[in-house]
Simulated assay, not measured.
Amino acid sequence: MELLLLHALPLDGTMWAKQMDLLPGATHAPTLYDFGDNIGSWAENALSLTTAKRLVVVGCSVGGSCALEVTALAPERVQALILIGTKAWRRRDLAYHSSVLKMLNEEGLEFAWQKSWSPLLSPVASPETIERTKKIALRQSLEDVARGVKVFHTRPSRDDVLSSLSGPVAIITGSEDTAPGIEISRKQAVMARNGLLYVVPECGHYVPIEQPEVLNSIICRTLETA
C-alpha cells in the first residue's frame, strides 16, 4: 500500500509535511504545476510516480479533483479515496475563471492570496499556521498558479467516480470551510457507495496544515480499512 497526496491551490507538495511519515518510504507528495495544463495530465503524471498496485489517494481542493481523475484512470489500483474540501461536480464559471486570472496578472500573487485564498483559512487559525500557508503560496510562480487556476476551472465533473468506487471514500471538510462546505460534502458522502463524512472543528479549507493530527487519524483509519 502506498499513499499519494495531492495538494491544493495555490500551494505545493510541502503542504503535506505532517503526513509524510504515515507510510515512510511509501508516500508521494508531488507538486503538480509542471504536470501540464489539464487535470488529466496531472493525474497521469501523478500516477506514474508509483508502481504500487494498491493506493490510497488523498487530495485537497484541486488536488481532490486530481485524486478523482487518478481514480478514474486506475480504479483497480485505488483502494481508498480521501477528499478534502473537494467538489466532484463542476459548474462552468467562465467569468470567475477570467476574473481570477486577471487579478493574478494585474495585481500579483500576494494580492490574489489575500483576496482569494487567505480567507479560506479558519478565523481561529494560529498566526504560525497562517504564516506557513502564506509562505508556501508566495513561493510559487505566478505562471504556475495561473496554470493551476486553469486546471481547476476546466476539470470535468467526476460524480461517477464517487458512486462507482467500491473502496472507502472519506469526505473531509473543515467546519469553517465554504468551498465547497458542509452541505455539499455531506451529499458527496451519501453519493459514494462506501462514504463517510468528517467535519473537522475549528478548521477551514487547508485541513492538512490547519489540523494535521485530525487528518492523520482519518488517514490511518482509512488505511486500516482499505
Rank of each mutant, 00 (worst) to 15 (best):
Leu4Ala: 10
Leu4Gln: 08
Leu5Ile: 09
His7Leu: 04
Ala8Pro: 09
Ala8Ser: 15
Pro10Arg: 05
Pro10Tyr: 04
Gly13Cys: 06
Thr14Glu: 13
Thr14Ile: 01
Trp16Ile: 03
Trp16Arg: 07
Gln19His: 04
Gln19Gly: 03
Ala29Pro: 11
Pro30Cys: 09
Asp34Glu: 14
Asp37Phe: 00
Asn38Glu: 09
Gly40Val: 07
Trp42Asn: 07
Glu44Met: 03
Asn45Gln: 15
Ala46Arg: 08
Leu47Arg: 14
Leu47Tyr: 11
Leu47Asn: 11
Leu49Ser: 02
Leu49Lys: 10
Lys53His: 05
Lys53Gly: 09
Val56Ile: 12
Val57Ser: 11
Val57Leu: 08
Val58Gln: 08
Gly59Ser: 07
Gly59Leu: 08
Gly63Asn: 07
Gly63Ser: 07
Gly63Cys: 09
Gly64Gln: 14
Ser65Cys: 10
Ser65Pro: 03
Cys66Phe: 05
Leu68Ser: 13
Leu68His: 12
Leu68Met: 12
Glu69Tyr: 09
Ala72Pro: 09
Ala74His: 05
Pro75Val: 04
Glu76Trp: 06
Glu76His: 13
Glu76Gln: 15
Arg77Leu: 05
Val78Met: 14
Ala80Asn: 10
Leu81Asp: 12
Ile82Cys: 15
Ile82Ala: 15
Ile84Glu: 00
Gly85His: 03
Thr86Asp: 06
Lys87Ala: 13
Ala88Ile: 12
Ala88Cys: 10
Ala88Trp: 11
Asp93His: 06
Ala95Arg: 14
Tyr96Phe: 14
Tyr96Thr: 10
Val100Asn: 04
Lys102Tyr: 14
Met103Glu: 12
Glu106Asp: 13
Glu106His: 10
Glu107Ile: 02
Gly108Glu: 09
Leu109Trp: 05
Leu109Ser: 06
Glu110Thr: 14
Ala112Cys: 15
Trp113Cys: 00
Trp117Asp: 05
Pro119Ile: 00
Val124Trp: 05
Pro127Lys: 07
Pro127Phe: 07
Ile130Arg: 15
Lys135Asp: 11
Lys135Thr: 15
Ile136Trp: 06
Ala137Gly: 03
Leu138Asn: 00
Gln140Leu: 04
Leu142Cys: 08
Asp144Tyr: 02
Val145Ile: 15
Val145Ala: 05
Ala146Asn: 03
Gly148His: 01
Gly148Asn: 03
Lys150Asp: 09
Phe152Trp: 07
His153Ala: 13
Arg155Phe: 11
Pro156Asn: 07
Pro156Ile: 03
Arg158Trp: 00
Arg158Ser: 04
Arg158Cys: 02
Asp160Gly: 10
Leu165Met: 14
Leu165Gly: 06
Ala170Tyr: 06
Ala170Asp: 14
Ser175Val: 00
Glu176Ile: 00
Asp177Val: 00
Asp177Trp: 02
Asp177Leu: 01
Thr178Cys: 01
Ala179Asp: 05
Pro180Leu: 01
Ile182Leu: 03
Ile182Ala: 00
Ile184Lys: 14
Arg186Val: 01
Met191Asp: 00
Ala192Gln: 02
Gly195Arg: 07
Leu196Val: 12
Pro201Trp: 03
Glu202Phe: 04
Gly204Ser: 02
Val207Glu: 06
Ile209Arg: 02
Gln211Glu: 08
Pro212Asn: 00
Glu213Pro: 02
Leu215Ala: 05
Leu215Pro: 12
Leu215Lys: 02
Leu215Met: 01
Ile218Ala: 13
Ile219Thr: 10
Cys220Asp: 12
Thr222Val: 15
Leu223Thr: 07
Leu223Phe: 12
Leu223Pro: 04
Leu223Ile: 13
Leu223Arg: 11
Thr225Ala: 15
Thr225Asn: 15
